[in-house]
Amino acid sequence: MPRIWKFGDSVNTDDILPGKFAPFMAGEDVFQTFAFHYIRPEFAASVQPGDVLIGGRNWGLGSSREYAPQALKTLQVGGIVAPSFARIHYRNLLNLGIPAFEFDLTGLLEDGAQVSLDVQTGVLTHAAGTVQLPPPPEFLREALAEGSILAFFKKHGRFPGEPA
């Protein structure tokens, strides 16, 4: 069963993937092994597909580096739940198709807690019950229906909301 990896407030993109381990420096095949290298050095070797990251406010502040969420995608992280996200990082999560939910679970769940997350319904099940996570903001749903803005653009040749 997937587990919770619990983080605090203000997890920045250097925490998620330090700049010196960018794919063009560390290598495209191994850069993801440096995810959370400084703040949770055991993470990359231990994380299992579907595990859920929870954090505090302003998750993902800092750099525009898409390879930070790309590392989490490569490690098959199941989703990220935090009360607020930094904007560039949030766009990057959407573009890579990593489920992101704006909700604070840090008071409810401890690190290592067993959970399952249904990313379609936003229902997170834990040992003592379930939590309904909020749906993505209305303005993103058209894009997310295709999986990502990239997927939407490829299919329709335009941006969501743009006249055909």
Partner: peptide
């Protein structure tokens, strides 16, 4: 404004952003 590689590629490909 800053954006990640995918958004930047979409802007280069289309001449626009969203």
């Amino acid at each position: 404004s800053g954006m990640g590689a995918t958004d930047i590629a979409l802007a280069a490909a289309s001449g626009k952003t969203w």
